[in-house]
């Protein structure tokens, strides 16, 4: 594990961006750029991170940074990677670089899954990081395929009949791992040195690697901005967000949670779940707890821990 002292003091993701106080995406971007091993080109899908960090004529990025659209970060990264290969062949590119694509859960689970699948299948050498704030936050908190069951968003509101999103979250890492890529992992910004190790590991892979990192969002999850890291930690400690990695198909649990906290501890800090605490919807909390338990069982079995 890296220690604080080993991290560079250089800030490649600078202050002055317009992300909200307590935004997970900003924390994740900053940590990611502290884990780089060499010059790196960043591709950023449309979303909060992109919009808030590059309001022309300003930019927070001291690395080459490209935004093309919402659904295609992986395809754009493919093009950059192929270009560098071709340019090297004719002597027009002479340095080693890494490529990282950042996208939100909407840009990843939903609209961008095809482009991502194609890029993983073709085996381009890049690291894809999905910062998952569990909804389309940039456009005002709409549901995505990553929004958890019961969460209220503007397109899955806490109705009197339907209390938030009826569906459950996709198994995103399972989908990535099914492509047979060398490295895929989940992470939480509360466990920063685990995350940094994973970024370093993902960059070292020759070929595609994926990191799926929980990203607290004060505005969209409706929590206090000083609670972001606490929520990111509770996500892990309640077993809501298992932290594991899949290396060449082999699952490994990175953070053991022998005495999990009840899911309420995670839910109650977030306004998006507030309606579930009303008496008529309390059974939904039980359903979420059951999903967490089942998911944990499934993952830990895959990890050979159960």
């Amino acid at each position: 594990m890296v220690t604080l002292k080993e991290l560079t003091v250089e800030e490649l993701f600078t202050s002055g961006h317009r992300l909200c106080a307590g935004c997970g995406a900003g924390i994740i971007a900053r940590m990611t750029l502290k884990a780089l091993r060499r010059p790196t080109i960043i591709v950023n899908a449309t979303g909060c991170l992109e919009v808030a960090s590059t309001i022309y004529p300003y930019t927070s990025w001291r690395t080459p940074w490209v935004h093309v659209a919402f659904e295609n970060a992986a395809a754009v990264a493919s093009g950059i990677e192929a270009a560098i290969k071709a340019l090297k062949k004719r002597g027009a590119w002479n340095k080693e670089v890494d490529i990282i694509a950042f996208a939100g859960d909407g840009g990843t689970f939903d609209i961008g899954i095809q482009a991502l699948s194609g890029a993983l299948e073709r085996g381009h050498d890049f690291l894809y990081i999905c910062y998952d704030n569990e909804a389309y936050m940039n456009t005002g908190i709409q549901r995505s395929g990553a929004t958890p069951h019961g969460a209220a968003t503007t397109t899955s509101p806490a109705g009197t009949k339907i209390p938030g999103k009826p569906e459950f979250k996709k198994d995103f890492i399972g989908i990535c791992a099914a492509h047979g890529i060398e490295y895929a992992a989940t992470a939480s910004p509360a466990y920063w040195n685990d995350y940094i190790r994973k970024v370093q590991r993902g960059l070292a892979v020759e070929g595609p690697a994926v990191i799926h990192v929980f990203s607290p969002c004060p505005l969209g999850m409706r929590h206090d901005s000083d609670k972001s890291i606490e929520i990111a930690r509770l996500a892990v400690q309640t077993r809501y967000w298992p932290v594991y990695e899949v290396e060449n198909g082999k699952y490994k649990l990175n953070i053991k949670v022998p005495r999990p906290k009840p899911i309420e501890e995670f839910l109650k800090l977030q306004g998006r779940f507030r309606h579930l605490f009303k008496p008529q919807f309390q059974h939904e909390i039980k359903r979420i707890q059951e999903w967490v338990d089942e998911n944990w069982k499934r993952i830990t079995e895959l990890c050979g821990e159960a």
Binding site: I41, N72, A75, A77, G79, A83, A86, L87, S117, E121
Partner: peptide, 28 residues
């Protein structure tokens, strides 16, 4: 040819990859 051929999974990705490659300085 020395060219890299990216056999993408859609035309949307074809043009996206072309844009990425072009921004990296390649003839596309």
């Amino acid at each position: 040819v020395h060219a890299e051929f990216i056999c993408v999974e859609s035309e949307h990705s074809a043009m996206s990859a072309c844009i990425g490659a072009s921004l990296a300085g390649a003839r596309v």
